[in-house]
Nucleic acid binder design. Structure first.
Lengths: 173, 173
DNA sequence: ACTTGCATGTAAGTCGTTACATGATTGT
DNA sequence: ACAATCATGTAACGACTTACATGCAAGT
């Protein structure tokens, strides 16, 4: 899957590994992010499969490895893109701990939920300021859609955990 | 993290790897699931750390490896449980494809979203029937909370994707 | 006889992270 | 001079999955 994201970024323009990593910031980083230590080997694999082509460039006296997607790479990416995405599993540590909350005491449960809500609000603020920055820009509508999903998702979480916190207040201690 | 879930299940009673796997079904499987090929080696590691103790039992002429959590294991589990959970990242293939939707055509986008909503509805039906089965049972309230979160989460997704589908209908093709 | 479920484990492979290692350029 | 950013890569490790391999017991 990671390979297809890299190809997706190269659909826009040829890039270095470092540039792809930067491009993820503020765009995919909230639902997909990957480290440089993962990107460079991935480009190596993609090159072996001739899905990308490495171009050695000298810019400002610095050697760069710019990767360009090949026609075969485009076909590969579009074939992946066409397939209906699989339903995502929830995989949250917070739910896992909640599942075992009978083993924690009431103050711990309350603290968890309050701190979790704080974290949700922090993330929410980031996403909202990101979207505000995109207003009036030429950013694609689908990029904005992913951001909107993120914002609504964290709002949903905030609502849910606030209600949960209330219900904890009513628990018999 | 996986290790702590195994310990969490053993907090209830000593179990075999197979039993833990079964216990996940209908309880944690919607937000955490793991394969037997992962559970058995994990118990081996936990035993080396003396967090669990293997007990060889003969039941119905069959040899079983029943694992019991040790006092040290309990301490380890409770220490993990106490720490505030980290904010979960969204990591959904559907959002990733959405991000690149300018490269797909309108019928593909529509098909994706409709099929995704179908999958969400299927999952929702599973969760709702699970919860209905839990009504009146002695199931812990926190286990029910995790289920409720799941149900509300998939309802949120259904709403969001239905609105998104509508907005796709209005797109300039 | 056959299939399903119980039960345990290993091996190979995928996917990804963090830390290590290096070095140039740009801005203060 | 110093820090930050640009830029590339490797090594070690961790977490997990699927497939392989085995075998008994219970139900049909």
């Amino acid at each position: 899957m990671q390979d297809n994201i890299l190809l997706g970024f190269l659909m826009h323009r040829p890039m270095t590994g470092y540039e792809v990593k930067k491009a993820m910031g503020g765009s995919t980083e909230f639902f997909f992010n990957t480290s440089l230590g993962s990107i460079y080997p991935a480009f190596g694999r993609l090159e072996k499969q001739t899905l990308v082509k490495k171009e050695r460039r000298l810019e400002q006296g610095r050697a760069k490895n710019v990767y360009r997607i090949t026609p075969k790479g485009k076909k590969h990416f579009l074939a992946w893109l066409e397939k209906t995405p699989k339903l995502a599993n929830i995989r949250e540590e917070s739910l896992l701990k909640m599942f075992f909350y009978e083993h924690a005491d009431a103050p711990t449960r309350g603290r968890h939920v309050r701190e979790y809500i704080d974290a949700v609000e922090g993330r929410l603020a980031e996403l909202i300021s990101l979207r505000d920055g995109l207003r009036g820009s030429k950013a694609g509508r689908y990029r904005i859609s992913t951001l909107d999903f993120g914002i609504e998702f964290y709002r949903f979480q905030r609502r849910w955990y606030e209600k949960f916190l209330e219900s904890l207040g009513n628990e018999a201690i």
